[in-house]
Design a protein around this nucleic acid. Structure first.
Lengths: 102, 102
DNA sequence: TTTTTTGTTCTTTTTCATAGAAACATGATT
DNA sequence: AATCATGTTTCTATGAAAAAGAACAAAAAA
């Protein structure tokens, strides 16, 4: 996105707001619907797929194995890989949490 | 992404999972970081901007006024407009809620 | 140390959302 | 009824971003 500079403040406010909104949606049904409303189908698919990739990486699958499994290129996997390598990664924490919860 | 949203299967499972994950992130700091990790910058920008559009529409601004303000084309606004016209819209409920809360 | 496997980065190609410019619909105002 | 403002939809062209494929780097295994 490329928005005129003068709108930056407003957009930043919207950014904080939508984070807040996401935080206060209590139940899964509403969350699911909200995500369908504010994300395009391809964005949602991409998001879900990215989560799937991170899980596979987290479970120790090699990048090439994942690439073959989903018929995608390696470069697509690097992103998720980088995120999980970051020590402060929230995604990593959430994956760990999910593991212990189930 | 081009993986059809099935009603069963690993992708659907990941979909339900990530909805659950979003639901259980309690605080805004983590939510913000998580969104930065699992969405690309342009996806996040698009999402935030879409929320901004919906707010403007909700407050009664005309589509043409919004288009001029942000220097975007009208066709881009139709999406948000359609969402808000649906009486079951969660976005609409959340906008109402935000209004009464503040 | 050489070979093999795995991970990362680079360049090119493809894809997808959007702009722009209408046309058409609807609804309000006169 | 005629006019004007607004909303919706369609079309092609364009540009930004994502992805592919290949080259390169690093690490592990032999």
């Amino acid at each position: 996105m490329f928005l005129p500079i003068e709108t930056t403040g407003v957009i930043m406010q919207s950014y904080n707001e939508i984070v807040k909104v996401f935080c206060h949606i209590g139940n899964e049904k509403d969350m699911k619907q909200f995500m369908r409303e504010v994300l395009t189908e391809s964005e949602l698919d991409a998001l879900v797929f990215r989560w799937r990739l991170m899980k596979d990486l987290y479970h120790g699958e090699t990048q090439r194995s994942i690439a073959n499994k989903y018929h995608i290129s390696l470069c697509k996997i690097t992103r998720g890989s980088k995120i999980l390598k970051n020590k402060d990664s929230i995604s990593l924490k959430l994956l760990k949490k999910q593991e212990t919860d189930t």
